[in-house]
């Protein structure tokens, strides 16, 4: 297809305009955050405590809370989710129950995050007596991430060619040796991609934590899972709700901090994936 013919096509022009409008909206979003966050662009902002005064307030506790939540969520959702995926793909007898568990987990991916917060409030915060702590937040976010982790891991495991398994069994490997030595290494890059996507959504989730009872005014940085629940997304929410202009700058600044955390996480995972793929080649 030659360029002039493409250019004269009205549908192509309309679709191109729509695509560039989407790109422009993204550019406006980024520019808004950058301009709005300018007043708080100093390293102290990442360490300071939030305050009743906008001046000198920071995201120290919220940032620490988000890092704790990411750690807790990863520690809970990744082993359980990957284990579930391996079991369903490689171990489970092909019964109706296994199929039901698999499809139920897949359909849970359509559940609104805020509903996990409501259920987590009844189960973790009240039922199991965790209170509005980072631990309750981590458990809730892990439950939120779990279906996506399982679905992505199963897809990655399924994409490993059957010949790899057959060859290993043919050489006398046991099932676990096949899984540990062949299937998991081959599926790992794909799993990481899916898990990372799940985590970007989960670490940025504000609604479930808000329902659990996240606090946005802490005078110390949380040091363990039993400390009060606080996080960057809920801090952004609290600051955005205040109508004063100074707090809008804080909200945008916290938004930039959150985006940087997510970007760093994605880049780290990308680097690990590259190394894995190079190593397997």
């Amino acid at each position: 297809m030659t360029a002039p013919a493409r250019r004269r096509d009205p549908l192509g022009m309309a679709c191109g305009a729509a695509a560039f409008a989407v790109a422009a909206a993204f550019a406006v979003l980024v520019a808004f955050l950058a301009v709005e966050a300018r007043p708080v662009a100093n390293p102290g902002f990442l360490l300071e405590m939030p305050s009743r005064m906008a001046d000198g307030a920071g995201v120290g506790p919220a940032l620490a809370g988000t890092l704790w939540l990411a750690l807790l969520t990863a520690g809970l959702a990744v082993p359980v989710g990957v284990g579930t995926a391996v079991y369903l793909e490689e171990y489970a007898p092909r019964t109706r129950l296994a199929a039901l568990v698999g499809s139920a987990l897949a359909s849970l991916a359509g559940t609104p995050p805020v509903v996990y917060g409501v259920a987590g409030l009844a189960l973790f915060v009240r039922g199991l007596g965790m209170g509005p702590s980072l631990l309750a937040g981590g458990c809730t976010l892990a439950a939120l991430a779990l279906p996506t982790v399982v679905v992505a891991s199963r897809a990655a495991i399924r994409s490993v060619p059957q010949g790899v398994r057959l060859a290993a069994y043919g050489l006398g490997a046991t099932r676990w040796q096949v899984v540990r030595g062949e299937v998991l290494p081959a599926a790992a890059p794909g799993m990481l991609a899916g898990v990372c996507l799940a985590f970007t959504r989960t670490v940025g989730a504000a609604a479930p934590l808000l329902v659990l009872g996240a606090v946005s005014f802490m005078t110390f940085a949380p040091r363990g899972p039993a400390d009060p629940l606080t996080s960057l997304p809920t801090q952004i929410f609290a600051w955005t709700k205040r109508s004063e202009q100074d707090f809008a700058a804080l909200a945008a600044g916290a938004g930039v901090a959150l985006l940087l955390v997510l970007l760093a996480m994605n880049l780290a995972v990308l680097a690990v994936r590259r190394r894995m793929e190079d190593a397997s080649r």
């Binding site: 171990y91 009844a122 040796q177």
Partner: peptide, 30 residues
């Protein structure tokens, strides 16, 4: 490792399904 792998992976599945069933359960009860 071979003898443990099956039960451990099954336990993961039970934990995953159990957590989600429990969450749905409290929602339904309330």
């Amino acid at each position: 490792a071979d003898r443990l792998a099956g039960p451990v992976l099954l336990a993961c599945t039970v934990a995953a399904a159990g957590t989600l069933v429990a969450l749905a359960g409290v929602l339904g009860v309330e």
